[in-house]
């Protein structure tokens, strides 16, 4: 394929990845890496570097739209960034010692975990349960706008959430994704934060986390301009459209859509990793 065609096709593909990533709050990475490696046959190292850049673009580009809605919990995001950024450095260092097929398999497993948690349905409960001492001290409890007015919520299991965030950071640095799925799990499942809040707060953290590992990857030579350029431009376009839709979309539909897509991609990645096709 000549460079011009490759560029144009990739812009389109990345736009779709960015759109889905933005809708689900996961960044473009989870769709982008399978797209680059499985469809465009790009070496996974390049794919990871490129994906990190696009993850930053999605996160930073959508931030303005998210904060206007008043959903993002800035203090919670900042506190958890401590865990994710330290993890991101650990992950980027770890990436040097893991083989290509190893990365593909780990990637697939992470995708499956993300999908599985989405299929387990849990009612959208906002409990008035008392928050722990730590979340009071850190002033993490907040409220968010719903159709029926401002809804207060409390933050549970701060320590558990923090540890999970560190894992999310490691995964982000290792696989070049925002690991928004793990972040949402940490906040949604462990810390018991409403889905819309966890999604947007996750988006808030993803950019900073990805920037840490992107800096490391750039200096290691994993970031190629010819590849990153169409991907970044495409993802930005897709994310822009996605961020316009978020507030109206239904939580369950979002999760279901996302779960189906990534399950298919996960199986592909694991299969290709085991057969050393990647």
């Amino acid at each position: 394929m000549i460079v011009l065609t490759f560029t144009l096709v990739l812009i389109l593909g990345a736009a779709i990845a960015g759109f889905i990533g933005s809708l689900t709050g996961l960044g473009g990475g989870v769709v982008l890496i399978p797209l680059l490696t499985l469809v465009f046959k790009v070496d996974i190292h390049y794919a990871i570097g490129t994906s990190l850049i696009s993850v930053i673009a999605t996160s930073s580009g959508a931030a303005a739209a998210y904060v206007k809605e008043g959903i993002t919990n800035i203090r919670l995001g900042m506190f958890l960034e401590l865990a994710t950024t330290i993890g991101a450095i650990m992950g980027a260092v770890l990436a040097k010692h893991v083989s290509t097929s190893g990365i593909a398999i780990v990637f697939g497993i992470i995708l499956l975990i993300s999908a599985a948690t989405s299929f387990i349905h849990h009612e959208a409960k906002i409990d008035g349960e008392l928050p722990g001492r730590l979340s009071n001290w850190l002033r993490l409890n907040n409220e968010y706008p719903t159709e029926t007015g401002m809804q207060p919520y409390t933050v549970k299991h701060v320590t558990g959430g923090f540890v999970m965030m560190n894992v999310a950071g490691i995964v982000s640095g290792l696989l070049g994704i925002g690991s928004g799925a793990l972040k949402v799990i940490a906040m949604d499942r462990i810390m018991r934060i409403p889905f819309k809040v966890s999604t947007t707060t996750s988006n808030f953290m993803i950019g900073v986390t990805a920037a840490v590992s992107a800096g490391i990857y750039l200096r290691e030579g994993y970031i190629d301009p010819g590849l990153s350029m169409p991907v970044v431009l495409g993802v930005l376009l897709g994310a822009f459209i996605g961020s316009k839709i978020l507030f109206k979309a239904k939580t369950r539909v979002l999760k279901f859509l996302f779960a189906i897509i990534i399950s298919i991609l996960a199986v592909e990645m694991i299969y290709n990793g085991i057969t050393h096709k990647l």
């Binding site: 000549i2 460079v3 030579g221």
Partner: peptide, 21 residues
Amino acid sequence: ALIFLKQHGFDQSQYTFFKGE
């Protein structure tokens, strides 16, 4: 991108193997 595509738009793209930058 405009500079790059003007110079290399009709070259063959090659990203299958990692060479480093």
